[in-house]
Design a protein around this nucleic acid. Sequence first.
DNA 1: TGCCAGGCCCTCTTTAGGGCCTT
Length: 203
Amino acid sequence: MEAVAVIDFETTGLSPAQGDRATEVAAVIVQDGRVVDRYQSLMNAGVRIPAYIESLTGISNAMIRSAPPAAQVMREVADFVGGIPMVAHNAAFDAKFWDAELARIERTRAQDFVCSLLLSRRLFPLAPSHRLGALVEYARLPVAGRFHRALADAEMAASLLLRLEDELRLRHQVAQVSVALLCRIQRASKAQLPKCLAAARGV
DNA sequence: TGCCAGGCCCTCTTTAGGGCCTT
């Protein structure tokens, strides 16, 4: 598979449209079956983190006060990722924060966003839960650090992506896994999935 | 203090409702 950037945000809430902002971002570059580069930074967007999110993530208002400005961090991470396809667990969430934070520095995203949550629902239908932590346990992936910290979650989502790639190769005999195929799989309905995988096998 | 969104997916569905997932 071509190189991808697996990203994860910690934020003050669920919706940039409601005024929520990013507090931490991480991106790991996955190439040739392994993580080859990493970026991580706290970011100060000048908004207060609610107490229940401080306890969820361990990221405090004091930590954010001494963090670099959000605009600087977004310029750095966007340059780090460049134009390669992006991946996140529940990508709808991270994509809306990525696009909202980029818009504040007058930049836009051009590449695809692959969702490891949607892929897991297709390829691990028997998993008891498709939360990142539950999938790490289900697939016996290494715990990369504290859950709900950006770099640890990005590393674990990267491990999950590589496991999903293995699943396509070994169980479904797909010789060539590509981002385009992952995009087709995540858009496929349950009924469409067998045909989608058969086409990928060249049947 | 408590709550806020939105897309996906299942089902006792499609003229809808509710759980899952992200912070």
